[in-house]
């Protein structure tokens, strides 16, 4: 009878003690939150708002006209093509690399990991220049390509190559730690139960990393569509031919055509917002799964 109020009392005390011991006074908390919010607004929200206001300054009609301009459409198309090739390529490569690195032991593994990180370490402009050096007119295989009437530099293949290079690490980087943490017990169990390599990949490995994989793909896509430096070097800036969206924005801006420049830029900004939304959704999902697992453990 008497134990109930005592325990209530003590738990109440515990709560108070914990909150006092581990948190700052209210004014410090609000100060920190305020600073963070101010910083975010100044450097992220205000520019974002500016993009959309500038884009719509001369009215919605001008906005639509700017976007339906043939050169703008062509740049959108090219960006989508580059992403449509780069993302699946890097998806396949990323899964293969992560699988190899996480599930097998072999010589030169650390070198492979370093190589995968290379695009992060190299400036995108250098990446573009490398392709010019290899495939350009004066490049190593330039003359052979011309003999066969193939254009890589200042053409779509060059843009795709540069995009693939720059977005190379995202999927693999996302998957390697995940797969390493999961170990290879489940794959071995599948093997003993008679599954083939494909069946193990499709039925065990990929379902286990699906959220990480999706996250990697989204990041790859965002980067593929937004890449400027590397693509700028290999593109040649031929309007309506080899301009991607970021390049097109630059050209319009340099021509003082602000409304059109911001109109195209607003599309890229939208892409960023969608990416962020998807990213939070995935993170929320992963967290929820983890919580469910934790609950059931207890």
């Amino acid at each position: 009878m008497s134990s109930a109020p005592i325990s209530q009392h003590s738990s109440y005390h515990k709560k108070v003690a914990r909150s006092r011991a581990t948190s700052e006074p209210i004014w410090i908390r609000w100060l920190l939150i305020g600073i963070t919010l101010m910083f975010l607004s100044l450097f992220l929200l205000v520019p974002l708002a500016a993009v959309f206001t500038e884009a719509l300054r001369k009215g919605f009609d001008t906005y639509i006209t700017a976007l339906s301009d043939p050169d703008a459409l062509s740049s959108i198309k090219l960006t989508l093509i580059a992403a449509a090739i780069a993302v699946p390529l890097n998806l396949v490569f990323g899964v293969a690399a992560a699988w190899a690195i996480a599930k097998f032991e072999f010589r030169g593994k650390s070198i492979l990991i370093t190589l995968i990180d290379l695009p992060f370490a190299v400036s995108p402009v250098i990446a573009g220049l490398i392709y010019v050096l290899i495939f350009g007119m004066q490049g190593w295989v330039g003359s052979t390509l011309i003999d066969h009437d193939l254009k890589v530099i200042f053409a779509i293949p060059g843009i795709v190559l540069a995009t693939v290079f720059v977005t190379f690490p995202f999927v693999a980087r996302e998957l390697i730690p995940l797969m390493q943490a999961q170990g290879k017990d489940e794959e071995e169990a599948g093997l003993v139960l008679g599954a083939s390599g494909w069946q193990i990949l499709w039925r065990i490995t990929l379902p286990n990393v699906k959220w990480g994989l999706l996250y990697g793909v989204i990041l790859t896509n965002a980067r593929a569509m937004g890449e400027f430096g590397a693509v700028s070097v290999v593109s040649g800036h031929i309007r309506g031919m080899t301009n991607t969206m970021p390049l097109h924005v630059e050209i319009l801006y340099n021509e003082y055509n602000y409304a059109a420049a911001f109109a195209v830029a607003s599309l890229l900004a939208l892409l960023a917002l969608v990416t962020l939304a998807l990213k939070s959704f995935i993170e929320w999902n992963v967290e929820r799964n983890a919580q469910q697992h934790e609950q059931s453990f207890n």
Binding site: D185, E186, E188, A189, G190, V192, R203, I204, P207, N208
Partner: peptide, 11 residues
């Protein structure tokens, strides 16, 4: 084969 940590397919 029964693995030490069971290796059940978690999904």
């Amino acid at each position: 084969f029964v693995f030490q940590h069971y290796a059940l397919f978690r999904h």
